[in-house]
């Protein structure tokens, strides 16, 4: 084996079975990976408390981790701990979404600042978002902001409920499709200034987490209707080229100070 690959023997020594070790080494052929960083990454994952099977899973999902320098990785892990991902949740996040360790600490801090200052989430809520939907930190902040504002203003949902229903696991399109379908059917209403509606809005959790059948039941619709609807609104939204600009203006004129 060449210089750029991990030595099988050193991997077996770390506690992997032979076949796990072979996979671990094969993955190290990933472009740009470096045996020194690969070894330190594997060690760091063990230090986090992951078992060999979990480590393999993490590397399979995200072989880019072999390119991260030891110091960087440590800094990122420390940063996540500081943001409230304590033992248990940190490990779950890393196993579920190892890409989080490829993101520079600075970028995560920017996302956190954004969530706190633009969307007024508490630090505790931000930790919840990191824990339940870590991918959110990689999303374009314009998207994130639009999604937040859509749910906050159009759907009238407050921050606590957004976190509880793991809003940021869903794409803007998923949220918008389901909400606007219910809205056009007369089953969802934007609350007025006093938070009142004429219909009883379903909870965000139910809107987002129902499987397709349960959602159709909630909307009392057929699968055919929802399918056509999604294709129609996709086109509607694409045509609303100025939508974003108009939305910004609207927020500025009458909405902004309402975020509380």
């Amino acid at each position: 084996s060449s210089q750029s690959e991990l030595a099988l023997s050193s991997v077996v020594e770390m506690g992997f079975t032979d076949s796990q070790a072979e996979q671990i080494c094969a993955l190290s052929r990933f472009r740009g990976s470096n045996p020194k960083h690969a070894l330190s990454t594997l060690t760091a994952l063990f230090v986090l408390g992951l078992n060999p099977a979990s480590v393999l899973k993490v590397i399979e999902k995200c072989p880019e981790l072999y390119t991260v320098k030891e110091a960087q990785l440590q800094q990122r892990i420390t940063n996540l701990r500081k943001l409230g991902l304590v033992e248990g949740s940190l490990q779950r996040v890393v196993v579920h979404y190892p890409q989080i360790l490829t993101v520079p600490a600075k970028r995560i801090r920017t996302a956190v600042t954004f969530l706190r200052e633009k969307c007024l989430f508490t630090m505790h809520q931000v930790t919840g978002i990191l824990r339940d939907s870590p991918a959110a930190v990689l999303e374009n902040t314009n998207h994130l902001e639009y999604k937040f504002q859509y749910v906050y203003f159009r759907m009238g949902v407050k921050q606590a409920e957004m976190v509880k229903s793991k809003l940021f696991r869903f794409s803007l399109d998923e949220v918008r499709n389901r909400h606007s379908f219910l809205e056009r059917r007369g089953l969802y209403q934007t609350p007025d200034k006093n938070g009142q509606t004429l219909v009883i809005n379903p909870r965000l959790d139910r809107v987002l987490h129902s499987d397709q059948d349960a959602f159709l039941k909630l909307a009392s619709a057929s699968a055919e209707e929802y399918d056509v609807f999604k294709r129609l609104v996709e086109r509607e939204w694409r045509q609303e080229e100025h939508q974003w600009a108009r939305w910004e203006k609207w927020i500025q004129e009458e909405g902004k100070e309402k975020i509380t």
């Binding site: 059917r185 007369g186 009392s220 209707e225 609807f229």
Partner: peptide
């Protein structure tokens, strides 16, 4: 009656 949500949604769509 129960037909209205479906008709409403169609009326509000293209």
């Amino acid at each position: 009656g129960p037909l209205w949500p479906s008709v409403r949604c169609a009326l509000l769509s293209e």
